[in-house]
Design a protein around this nucleic acid. Structure first.
Length: 139
DNA sequence: GCCAACGTTGGC
DNA sequence: GCCAACGTTGGC
């Protein structure tokens, strides 16, 4: 069972949208490394939903989801490289965990989230997951 | 809104 | 196959 973090631009598709739909098709991923991560996702994997910087506050992890359907070709795209997964809404964090806090946490020193800011699908270790959960209930 | 970092495209 | 030019992402 693996953990992931996926970024979304909240003005395009937000955690609220995922909650409303219950299950969402995670499409639009074009970066080759991000696509490789999508292909590695298994049903049941845990996912952190991250809002990238918009007008609604700093970039932050805001919610939780689960992979409910493993990778398949994007039905709306004509290029077989463009694949998608389905994510199911699980919940919202008690408190968003800002990127600045994540950067300050040692667990993420080697993470692509910090090292390669533009990667939109990132693997998350168990230790990193645990730290985000701790930060989400901290004051 | 700016710009750094990174990907992609296309001329050669 | 190289690399300059251009486009995009995303933090600030």
């Amino acid at each position: 069972m693996a953990n992931w973090l996926v970024k979304t631009e909240p003005s395009a598709y937000s955690l609220d949208d995922l909650e409303r739909e219950g299950t969402g098709v995670w499409d639009g991923v074009r970066n080759p490394v991000a696509l490789r991560n999508l292909r590695a996702m298994q049903v049941g994997d845990r996912v952190l939903i991250y809002h990238s910087g918009g007008r609604k506050g700093p970039p932050a992890v805001v919610g939780l989801a689960r992979v409910v359907k493993a990778v398949y070709p994007d039905p709306k795209a004509d290029d077989p490289r463009w694949v998608v997964v389905d994510l199911g809404f699980v919940g919202r964090l008690r408190r968003p965990v800002a990127l600045s806090e994540i950067k300050a946490a040692g667990e993420f020193e080697t993470s692509a989230l910090v090292r390669q800011g533009r990667l939109s699908v990132v693997a998350v270790t168990d230790a990193q997951w645990k730290r985000v959960m701790e930060l989400a209930v901290a004051q």
